[in-house]
Computed example of a mutant assay.
Amino acid sequence: MPAKSKAQQKAAGAALAAKRDPKKKRTLKGASQEMLESMSEKELHDLASTKHQGKPEHVSK
């Protein structure tokens, strides 16, 4: 599942880092905290490793 925006990709990267290093969990907020709780490490990796060229900074709902 590719990221739809750079912000989503950054949040997934932060959640992935926290999943790999539990010390970083307390620094997460918002979307990255939700991603950490609801997604597997593989899903986070796939989302965070999306090419960001041509992606908007944010996508409205």
Rank of each mutant, 00 (worst) to 15 (best):
M1R: 08
M1A: 14
P2N: 13
A3S: 15
A3D: 07
A3G: 05
A3V: 00
A3Y: 03
A3T: 10
K4P: 02
K4Y: 02
K4G: 03
S5Q: 06
S5V: 05
S5G: 07
S5K: 08
S5L: 06
K6N: 05
K6P: 00
A7W: 12
A7K: 12
A7G: 01
Q8F: 01
K10R: 12
K10Q: 13
K10P: 00
K10S: 11
K10D: 10
A12T: 02
A12H: 10
G13K: 14
G13P: 01
A14E: 15
A15M: 03
A15T: 00
A15Y: 11
A15E: 07
A15F: 09
L16R: 04
L16M: 14
L16H: 09
A17N: 07
A17M: 08
A17E: 10
A18R: 09
A18N: 07
A18H: 07
A18E: 08
A18C: 11
K19Q: 12
K19A: 12
R20E: 09
R20N: 09
R20P: 02
D21A: 12
D21L: 11
D21F: 09
P22Y: 04
P22K: 08
K23M: 10
K23W: 01
K23R: 13
K23T: 11
K24H: 04
K24D: 05
K24N: 07
K24L: 15
K24Y: 03
K25R: 15
K25Y: 04
K25W: 05
T27G: 13
T27S: 13
T27K: 13
T27C: 04
L28M: 06
L28N: 03
L28H: 04
L28R: 04
L28V: 02
K29D: 08
G30P: 04
A31Q: 14
A31H: 07
S32T: 11
S32I: 06
S32G: 03
Q33Y: 05
Q33E: 12
E34N: 07
E34G: 02
M35C: 00
M35K: 00
M35A: 08
L36Y: 15
E37K: 05
E37C: 05
S38W: 00
S38H: 07
S38C: 01
M39K: 15
M39Q: 13
S40F: 10
S40D: 14
E41S: 14
K42E: 15
E43K: 11
E43W: 03
L44D: 01
L44V: 13
L44R: 06
L44K: 04
H45C: 00
H45P: 00
H45M: 10
D46Y: 02
D46C: 02
D46H: 10
D46P: 01
D46F: 04
A48I: 06
A48T: 00
S49P: 02
S49E: 14
S49W: 02
S49Y: 05
T50R: 10
T50Y: 06
T50Q: 06
T50K: 06
Q53M: 05
Q53S: 11
Q53G: 09
G54K: 02
G54D: 02
K55L: 15
K55V: 01
K55T: 00
K55M: 15
P56E: 08
E57F: 03
E57N: 03
E57V: 10
H58M: 05
H58W: 06
H58D: 12
V59S: 03
V59K: 14
V59E: 15
S60G: 00
S60F: 11
K61E: 11
